[in-house]
Each structure stands twice: as C-alpha cells, then as structure tokens.
C-alpha cells in the first residue's frame, strides 16, 4: 500500500521536475538578454539537484545525495562567476 503511494508520488515528482528543467532550459535558449540566460541556468541547476534528490528517494540510494550536493555547489559557483562576468566583463580581477 505505502509502496504504491510512494512510487506513484515519486514518479509524478520526477516528471514534474523534468518538465521544470525543460522550461528553465527554454529560458536559457530564449534569453532575450544575458542575465535572463544566467537566471535560467541557475534555475536549471537547482531543478536538476532536486531531481537527483527525488531519484535517490525512488531507488533508495544514498549516493544520489552526493551527486545532488556536487550539482548544487557547481551551480552556485557557475552562477556567481557568470554574474560577476556580467558586472565586470572579467571573472578574476
């Protein structure tokens, strides 16, 4: 009983988050300006991180947690570097 409920909920959540990732990707492709694309990229990273957490729950594996953490850190660094680049025109001063 609880297995059926959880499997259904986690599958729906995976599809929902995948759809959210596609929409964030649409904003990256569409722009129109550079800051819109960076915002889309940041959202895509967060969504991918959440998708990995849900996938880890679905398959009962703790290893997805580490992957999610790495994606989160990478997304943070990437967005900060890109935003700095938009302000200054260079990343490392």
């Amino acid at each position: 009983m609880s297995g059926t409920i959880l499997t259904l909920a986690l599958d729906v959540a995976q599809i929902t988050l995948a759809l959210a990732a596609v929409l964030a990707g649409w904003r990256i492709l569409r722009g129109p300006r550079a800051q819109d694309r960076v915002l889309g990229l940041d959202t895509l990273y967060v969504t991918a991180m959440l998708l990995f957490l849900v996938t880890g729950l679905r398959y009962g594996s703790v290893f997805f947690f580490e992957t999610a953490m790495v994606i989160g850190v990478m997304g943070f660094v990437a967005t900060v570097a890109l935003a700095k680049f938009l302000i200054r025109g260079e990343v490392i001063e």
């Binding site: 409920i5 959880l6 259904l8 909920a9 929902t16 988050l17 959210a20 849900v54």
Partner: peptide, 27 residues
C-alpha cells in the same frame, strides 16, 4: 518503499508533490 509505514509514506508523498509542484510553478 513497501517497508515504509503508512503514517510516514503519506506525508512524504504529499511533501514531494508539493515541492516538485512549487518548483514547476517557479519555472
């Protein structure tokens, strides 16, 4: 997932749906 008791499964399922739904709404 079958070994999870029902009292834990229902709130967890609702929370997962809430979280992913809000993320989708954001995008």
């Amino acid at each position: 997932l079958d070994t999870v008791p029902l009292w834990a499964a229902i709130p967890a399922a609702l929370l997962v749906l809430l979280g992913s739904g809000l993320t989708l709404l954001g995008t």
